[in-house]
Nucleic acid binder design. Structure first.
Lengths: 213, 213
DNA sequence: CTCTAAGCTTGAGCTACATCAAATCGCGGA
DNA sequence: TCCGCGATTTGATGTAGCTCAAGCTTAGAG
């Protein structure tokens, strides 16, 4: 039901067209697997359009969504020679890839990725604060603010994640996330039009909850 | 009592000598503040020697140690124009700084920092998994393994952090960290020679606990 | 329009960790 | 050597969020 037409989901063959160096852009449907944790790390990828989530699994199946990516964000990283995270699209998405060697040969690319890495590292630092020190309600408030670009203030925000995915991002259970949404609604901070459509009513109150995020 | 001679702690004047562009290396004593969250982000820094921790604070004083750095690691990052984290030395340390503009002018530097950013981003991804999905005992086991370079296997590991600092890194309280240490000892996985000296007895058992980290 | 299944909400009870409160340890200084 | 203070350990109790278990909502298929 969540799956759509699936032109190229990446879930059938695990390295779809990654070996052809000249195919720069790849198009994915929503809920497609782009790459798998543990696969050989051949290329570095960049989100051109759409939203992607990076996940890690524990042997017993516990999952953490470690990062949410939008246009410009970089993934496909590796501490050793295999990917450290899996990547799945949240929406339809366009993704570019670069050979790992290109980083040394192309200073412009390197400079661009460097800036992006800096931003992503800062975002991860914030996320560590969220995961380590914030209450469930604060986490959800923070999450909603983080998804709210200036343009969307006042209008309605579309979540392209299930409660389970949000929970795995925030280090909670889906029930706790659901209860937090209900509580934010009860307090008049947000309105829930549908389960996946939120309108932030009291931006100031949300910021206060989220620790002036 | 934790403080030593303090040649230049950085805690007296908040921008010690950061403005002189030609002073490349700075020497800090243990437990010195290198930079403050919220200060104007003038330079990018690199650990040459020693250990540094990056921390973030919530308005009400809750603290998270977001990253632990060793030689080669980079800090002093900013999403906007101010530092996103404070940085304190854990041990005596030597630190280099680079002008932010140097990243564009010096491709060699950019390439080196890029590699390091990749490693640090991967480490943050792991840390998100730890903070979001692991039990207290698993977190502490993971922490101890992470601090154990191959060279130290078998020999004794010196923690240069208090229980409170470890707790703030792992998203726990100092009491819970202390109990976890005791439990690891009880299970025969580690020996506690002193509060800050640990010997890992059962490396396999620790890895299993930490989720094959 | 109805049926179905995935996703969401809500309730009741449980548990891991936090909090509060004493001891106890161990190092630096007198 | 003894003292004092910060750090650590340990115990007793509280609670936020997890787990288990219903129902409810909604969108897509027939």
């Amino acid at each position: 039901m969540r799956q759509m037409i699936e032109e190229r989901t990446g879930s059938h063959s695990r390295h779809p067209t990654l070996c052809e160096p000249h195919i720069a852009h790849m198009r994915f449907t929503a809920h497609a697997t782009v790459l798998h944790e543990g696969d050989p790390a051949r290329r570095i990828m960049e989100v051109v359009e759409g939203a992607v989530m990076l996940t890690k699994l524990l042997p017993d199946g516990r999952r953490q969504v470690v990062e949410l990516l939008g246009p410009g964000d970089v993934f496909g990283l590796a501490a050793c020679d295999v990917y450290a995270c899996s990547a799945e699209t949240l929406t339809a998405a366009i993704i570019t890839t670069h050979e790992r060697g290109a980083l040394d040969r192309d200073p412009t690319l390197a400079a661009r990725l460097l800036r992006r890495f800096e931003a992503q590292l800062c975002a991860m630092h914030s996320h560590a604060l969220v995961l380590g020190r914030m209450s469930a309600l604060e986490r959800v408030a923070f999450f909603l603010l983080r998804l709210t670009p200036e343009s969307v203030v006042g209008s309605t925000l579309h979540l392209s994640m299930t409660r389970q995915e949000i929970a795995d991002f925030l280090g909670l259970t889906l029930e706790t996330v659901s209860r937090a949404f209900s509580e934010l609604k009860r307090r008049g901070l947000v309105a829930l039009l549908r389960a996946d459509e939120v309108k932030i009513h009291d931006h100031g109150g949300m910021r206060r909850l989220a620790g002036a995020a």
